[in-house]
Nucleic acid binder design. Structure first.
Lengths: 314, 314
DNA sequence: GTGAAAGCGCTAACAA
DNA sequence: TTGTTAGCGCTTTCAC
């Protein structure tokens, strides 16, 4: 039934060496000179016995585990989080580390830290609000900072390229519900507009939990008092709400009003008109964050980590 | 900067007892008789020093950690997974355990098990495919089994109550992409129909990644050759696709065709007609699964763990 | 009723 | 070049 665990001393015995030697070989300990044939014997013995180091014991000895904890927090389920996690997981695995997730509102709980003594603790919320000053995960590409700020810029740029100057930013109404990222995102959009030489975006607040009529009226009201020709969604959800509201008002999308999503969610191709949105290469962010958490050089971006998914709504 | 860790011997010294006594008191060890005043002294010392046991050391001693690992796998981001996680987390926390998540395709990776020696390993995929035979998480309510099978029943029941007998089940086309749950879900729907005394549901395969026209034609074709009056979605996504397709075909929803979602995703109220769907009380499942994982009595359901969100599409 | 001490599996000084 | 061994912080057996 339950195979007894293979311990380091089993490997040592099989290879005819001491446990210390096994440890040195398997961990490629620097500053140790071990004969190649010994190494080989140890390696083979470990492989044959199916030895895997006991993570707990190792953690106790080293003072911390080879675990990295990422809190996905309020973002759980949205956007490309799964991809980011996959990228981070892959990178960590390549370095012998293990990624574990929490899904708490206020960061990684203290109990988790006490329980696993992680090598590093990360929080997705920090990614979103990061800006030029605080966010070293994002980095720069060709001199441009590449955080969510960059993504906001990419979104507005697509709209500006199509000639739009009066742009509304559709944001969720219950600001608390949107998480800590909303103020940062609004600020990013402001700066992006300034850089693009277009007016500051006006805010279109949408209550996604309320009745559809309220959203229709909110859009109608905005269009009455403002020359807006395009709406940039805080996410695909807000963009979807605007498309539906426009249909109810008899406003043609994209002819009269262009609508663009953000952080592609998956249903953009299902609706009509199909939603143009921004697909963020979340896996790349995940890998970068992992390298930084391990104290490795994150390296340079090889390209902008997002792309516009052009469909019908712009 | 970094406070040195408070260890059990610091508490022991402060309370004037041995480390063994501290351990007994704090863990409420059975079969030990410790004077109340001693207990009190130990408790106070621990509190004053802010002592928290070192999880790694404890795990090494106990042979396994107080961690439970849940793999959210292919479900990450869909439906009410976040709620399920929250419920499970709360229940585990109440018993001194810690929930950690993985997001791997094929279950909890072996490295994770080696790294944290979890008390229990769970996989969301097992919840969905569970049936009367294999799924003890679901349990029974008033004699009825309450797994995803029950939820399928609840979905079809709502449609049947409204007089629908010829019902289509809209499923994702790329079966592999849908994960291992799809065959089980189809089977659940079959059995639910039998129990409701209505014909076996016909399948409407929808390629959610392909062009919208294909979905329109798929729906049109089905309606031509079959007297279907209602569509039950595999999830809200399939239901949304059907609503859009119906609009393109000029088919009125719900007058000519009722459409219902499954496992509410959040945008159901945004679209037109607003989507009737099934809101699964995922937190309740999470708590139950946690209790079972810890070897506790899961107790009885206090009610059916889902409710129909009646909106406009049925 | 409480304490001394062994030992969980591993790593890394230090010895040989 | 390799082996011996202390000890990470805790729980628990056994002795007092």
């Amino acid at each position: 039934m339950n195979e007894p665990r293979v311990r380091i001393r089993d490997v040592a015995r099989a290879a005819g060496v001491s446990t210390a030697t096994v440890s040195y070989v398997l961990n490629e300990a620097p500053g140790q000179t071990i004969r190649p044939e010994t190494r080989e014997r140890v390696r083979r013995a470990a492989a044959e016995l199916g030895y895997a180091p006991h993570g707990i014991a190792r953690s106790l000895r080293e003072g911390r585990s080879r675990i990295v904890v990422l809190n996905t927090g309020v973002f759980a389920g949205g956007g490309r989080v799964a991809e980011l996690v996959a990228g981070m997981d892959a990178e960590l695995r390549e370095h012998g580390f293990t990624l574990l997730l929490t899904s708490a509102a206020g960061g990684v709980p203290a109990e988790v830290v006490d329980a696993v003594a992680p090598r590093a603790v990360l929080d997705l919320a920090d990614f979103a609000v990061g800006d030029e000053r605080a966010d070293d995960v994002s980095g720069f590409v060709a001199g441009d900072h590449v955080g969510f700020a960059y993504q906001s810029y990419a979104q507005l740029q697509h709209l500006a390229e199509r000639g739009h100057r009066a742009i509304a930013l559709a944001v969720p109404a219950g600001r608390a519900a949107a998480g800590p990222a909303l103020p940062a995102r609004i600020e990013h959009a402001r700066r992006a507009a300034a850089r693009l030489g277009i007016p500051e975006p006006v805010l279109l607040e949408l209550d996604l939990d309320g009745p559809r009529d309220a959203r229709r009226d909110a859009l109608g009201g905005l269009l009455d008092r403002s020359p807006v020709t395009a709406v940039a969604g805080y996410s695909d959800d807000e963009a979807l709400a605007v498309i539906v509201a426009a249909a109810e008002l008899g406003i043609e999308v994209p002819a009269r009003l262009a609508v663009m999503g953000f952080d592609e969610r998956g249903y953009g191709g299902l609706i009509r008109p199909a939603l143009t949105t921004l697909r963020i290469d979340a896996a790349a962010y995940g890998r970068r964050a992992a390298r930084i958490a391990l104290g490795l050089d994150p390296g340079e971006w090889t390209g902008a980590p997002s792309s516009v998914v052009e469909r019908e709504s712009t």
